[in-house]
Design a protein around this nucleic acid. Structure first.
Lengths: 142, 142
DNA sequence: CCTTTTACTTATCTTTTGATAACAAAAAGG
DNA sequence: CCTTTTTGTTATCAAAAGATAAGTAAAAGG
């Protein structure tokens, strides 16, 4: 198999993924959080609680800057902080009720957009879709 | 089929795509261009020549800011400008030789990373991969 | 204990990005 | 012609992001 051609398709594909996911979260995203802060909140949606170090790694931000953005998110009351009892150096961050609610709205809108995109598909096609999603994730991403 | 569960998988998937594509272009990307400038160059790789308006649309930047970044790219001699003879208001931008070369290096590195990720796969698996890629692109993205 | 390492925070400074106003030049359309 | 619209540029200012130095507090490891 021609790896070059496959790579071309891969590039085009990732470009489309970027564009679509940007489109799906557009609008709601700017609900008083900066892009960097949004990325942190998004990360918290899938992994909670998290330490600053973990966030810094996953979101590709230096630890000092992560700390700053977390402070701003706390000031906006979108997340909460607690000290880990087992290791009192570690700080555990989680979404606040407000934060959960806001991200809930973002995801709800995104899901709505997603539904529209898959609206015309049959049961069979949805199954294929799910299979393709899992295949790609298993073999290429992660 | 449960659309909610499918959407969850979709979210996890796009997060992984973002992370992987970021990882693949890391390092080379910072070769003296900012993220915004890189996005412009990447766009030029697939569409050349382009006008400032087109770029502004596709890269989601205001026209004045697009103009500024294009000027900086010209100063770095990564792209070139020419006036459209048919409509002398329009400015046509394209990658310079240096720009082509630089983006060539970026894509080469990305391809190398991609090759590593698909290294263990059989011919059969590669075929499945390609099919999955095309299916997703056709039915969901774009 | 005492030193070193780890996890995080604060402070500060620079660069990048985003937004807006004002302008110039070419084309379009009466 | 003369006005209006389109296309792009320049200038400026505020906000956000990136980088780095210096510091605190807890844990780990002799």
């Amino acid at each position: 198999m021609d790896h070059g051609a496959l790579f071309q398709k891969f590039v085009a594909f990732t470009a489309d993924v970027h564009e679509v996911s940007h489109e799906l979260t557009r609008g709601v995203k700017s609900e008083d959080v900066t892009p960097a802060q949004y990325k942190i909140l998004e990360h918290m949606m899938v992994s909670q609680p998290v330490t600053p170090s973990e966030i810094a790694d996953c979101v590709d931000l230096s630890l000092p800057n992560t700390s700053r953005e977390l402070r701003k998110l706390m000031e906006k009351e979108l997340c909460e902080k607690a000290t880990d009892d087992a290791d009192r150096r570690r700080q555990l961050f989680r979404l606040s009720a407000d934060g959960q609610a806001m991200m809930g709205r973002v995801f709800a809108q995104a899901q709505q957009g997603f539904e529209q995109r898959i609206a015309g598909l049959t049961e069979q096609e949805l199954k294929e879709l799910e299979a393709a999603l899992e295949l790609l994730q298993r073999k290429v991403f992660r």
